[in-house]
Design a protein around this nucleic acid. Structure first.
Lengths: 360, 360
DNA sequence: GTATGATATTTGTCCGTATAAATCAACAAA
DNA sequence: TTTGTTGATTTATACGGACAAATATCATAC
């Protein structure tokens, strides 16, 4: 009645329950178990296979077999192969490329994705998070909403952490949580971009940054650091900060005001390409030429940026690659494998909106 | 990436969901499956083993393998308020705008969406459909894949029809099913566009159309009809047809050939803006100027089209509005209200790629 | 017609073997 | 110190074979 594989299974199960092997402990290798129980590899694998299904153990190819969190939520751990994706926007700007990258990886692995967007609004983020948990998704990828502000959804993130649902942040991360993330080195890149403007002979530069997400804060940091390296001109820097909830018209008015002054800046470093494209219109409405009168640089290398007139000098955001890497990392997390966060170094893309070097 | 046992598993699962094997039907024996899939017994047993775990089949020793009641226990389960969206692409071209429109409506109504893309491939469409049914979504929006070709997934669509899952087609529709749809009046629009080229003095026009989806076929129809209204010059029309699976390089070569002739056309009507943008490069590589030597028009009013040089004359596709309407219609369908299909009349957007009227 | 039993069929268990893929540790190179 | 490489270890996939156990089939006896 009792088959060999059942005996092996029961043997291991009772050892786990008895505490001989604690959660995350490594179990003996297959070869060792073969020796111990005097059975073939097939039998061992069959026994472990069932224990895996019952969430007593998990296996890592090449790594070994480990004790799973067998006491936790065995209630509704459905195997629905569904991952949740929460982003601030889904169809605008660089997001389609990121989503596409994620999709490619996860659908190769047989997963579907549920999409939800927050419009950069904490309340909507809360709703999205609750829905996702409700829908019993297996893992999550989240782009933080207003990552530079205190997050009112802390309670939910703590719940997620406790539940053990694999969760990965993209584009930025909330600093008070330890989830892995995939993001860009915004500060270094903006510094590089600002340095480039210096080499083009610009000393008075206006920086316009959205500061309710960390990317914006880091970009602003980079801008400031570039100036700090050139203390002689640092007093010439100027900045406008705004939040995503602000009326953009007011920002444009403020910029307009700055550029009507006698001592107006000669260049503008924008939070991103989307803003840069709008700012170009603002500057032009003052009868100033770009790049001759005012140089403009953006950030992200939006698809349109090389087509607009003049084509935009910017920093290249690895959109698609970031999506693919995020997908791969999440798959690893689902398989209990170790992952390390990624921070991409970014490259400058010189086009025409910041002119070419002038001798002076 | 895809292992043999996974292929067997997916194959059988698809057949069960598609209804080839009904509940309590006997499946082929292991030997037969070994023969059918050309794999060893181990592989068959592993595949069936997983299907057994997922309650798709049950086995009786000596008796055989049978289809389990796989629909039970999931129907009333979690996945309510979830709609499925299947499109040919998700992150390219005009799709983000459509998806965004759909999302706006359904998320207002408390729904989430599951995304899946087919890359315009019937096999992938099949997989997507099966996944959706598997996930027990409440309703579906589908952009047909290669809608001008006979559809090999007819069986699944019939099952969907029978199951009563509200289903809406966008962008096109399969003619042999009676699902509601939201689409554009491509033929009329292309006719209008061609007429416009006539008014610009063009008589020899090359039409390049992708003919494996109905939009392409209708656009071609419109092109032909425009010529039929001007019988005196209709012999001057010329066409290149291709399918999405074709190597685009070959199409470009063919077009190159045509434009190296003495009696080359003076204008090109392209299937869509995406193609038009590529064709412009092809024509330019022959040292021909646009629009002076060759006029080029597209279709869809892709976001980039107004930024490229020269800006593209095209037909405006109501992307966002189509998405919103599709969402609204689907909500009505879920509430068992009557809906009527929508066919949008489209407007011409004159820019610079087809020049301005020459007096002659 | 029904019951019985022999035989064939079909799934269950188990072994040995082989190759691939991932990981890890140790070492070498920069 | 860091980075890349190599080889050993470990799990993953896959094949083929063997026998056991349960069921199905069918001829035979009653």
């Amino acid at each position: 009645m009792e088959s060999k594989y059942e005996m092996v299974k029961q043997g291991l199960k009772s050892e786990i329950i008895a505490g001989k092997y604690q959660v995350t402990d490594k179990l003996p290798t297959e070869s060792e178990l073969m020796e111990q129980y005097k059975v073939s590899r097939y039998t061992i694998r069959r026994a472990i296979g069932e224990l895996e299904n019952e969430h007593y153990v998990y296996r890592i190819q090449g790594g070994g077999m480990f004790v799973d969190e067998w006491q936790k939520g065995r209630s509704s751990k459905v195997n629905n192969k569904m991952i949740g994706l929460i982003t601030t926007h889904i169809a605008d700007y660089i997001f389609p490329s990121i989503i596409s990258g994620i999709d490619r990886v996860i659908s190769d692995n047989g997963y579907s994705m549920i999409l939800s967007n927050t419009h950069n609004n904490h309340q909507k983020e809360r709703q999205s998070l609750i829905r996702m948990l409700d829908d019993n998704i297996e893992a999550m990828i989240i782009e933080p909403t207003q990552s530079a502000l205190p997050n009112p959804n802390r309670d939910i993130y703590e719940k997620i952490k406790a539940s053990g649902i694999p969760t990965l942040f993209i584009n930025s991360h909330y600093e008070d949580f330890t989830f892995p993330y995939v993001e860009t080195q915004d500060s270094d890149a903006e510094q590089q971009l600002t340095e480039y403007l210096f080499t083009q002979g610009h000393e008075k530069i206006l920086g316009i940054f959205q500061i309710d997400d960390l990317q914006g804060v880091h970009r602003m940091d980079g801008f400031i650091h570039a100036y700090l390296k050139h203390p002689k001109i640092s007093y010439l820097s100027e900045m406008v900060m705004y939040q995503s909830s602000d009326e953009m018209v007011k920002i444009f008015d403020k910029v307009s005001g700055i550029f009507q002054r006698e001592d107006r800046p000669t260049a503008i470093a924008c939070y991103n390409d989307q803003l840069a494209i709008q700012i170009i219109d603002v500057v032009r409405s003052l009868d100033l030429r770009i790049p001759e009168d005012v140089a403009v640089v953006g950030f992200d290398d939006y698809q349109l940026s090389k087509y607009i007139e003049p084509s935009l000098t910017t920093i290249v955001h690895p959109k698609g690659k970031m999506g693919i890497d995020a997908g791969k990392l999440l798959m690893r997390m689902i398989n209990h494998e170790e992952v390390e966060s990624i921070r991409y170094p970014l490259d400058l893309k010189i086009r025409k909106s910041a002119g070419i070097k002038k001798n002076q």
